[in-house]
Amino acid sequence: MRGRAIRWGVFILCLTPFLMLAWRAATGALGADPAKTLMLQTGEWSLRFLVLTLLVSPLRQWTGWALVMRMRRMIGLYAFFYACIHLASFGHFYIGWSATILAEELVERPYVTVGFVAWLLLLPLAVTSTRGWQRRLRRHWQRLHRLIYPAAVLACLHLLWQARSDIGEALVYIVMVGALLAWRWRRSRLWHARSRVAATRAAHT
């Protein structure tokens, strides 16, 4: 019961940036260039939720809270949700839903390509986020969902590539994603080392 209340709380909290953007859009409070504001804000929220998703496992290990693991799917889906609005804003405001212009942008502007690929990587993760798919894919599910690592790296690159004179903001995300990936790398090395030790021990007894 308490877990459910917390999950609803988190759901509303994650939706709040969207609700605030929608409210500002409806009241004309997005400034002179709502297109740009929407693009920047939804892109940034998507990256923030990606970082939060990556933070779940370490947080689980450090704090022992089982509840955070049950939030992971929702937070990950929110990363995808904001990425979709980001992409839709690009389609609507920047290229006027023209496939020709999209193709041209993808070829000529690598940061657009990189961002688009990041979104493509998140797409199967969102589709297979249900329990049903988790069961069907079994151990492949986990492997598939490691696609979030390249997606997060590409999202950082997408931001860095657009920095014109100040790379500070991009650096913050790069450091966060870098630290979270480094934590996983170290954990998997420890895990392998431990299983090697266990295997050796088993062989000797």
Binding site: A25, P34, H92, E108, W161
Partner: peptide, 23 residues
């Protein structure tokens, strides 16, 4: 002549809105 990061063929005349991108 495009900028490497932006196409220069179109522009967004400000202000724009959700319903009128003003491209």
């Amino acid at each position: 002549v495009d900028h490497p990061r932006w196409s220069q063929k179109y522009e967004r005349r400000l202000p724009n809105s959700l319903f009128d991108p003003n491209r």
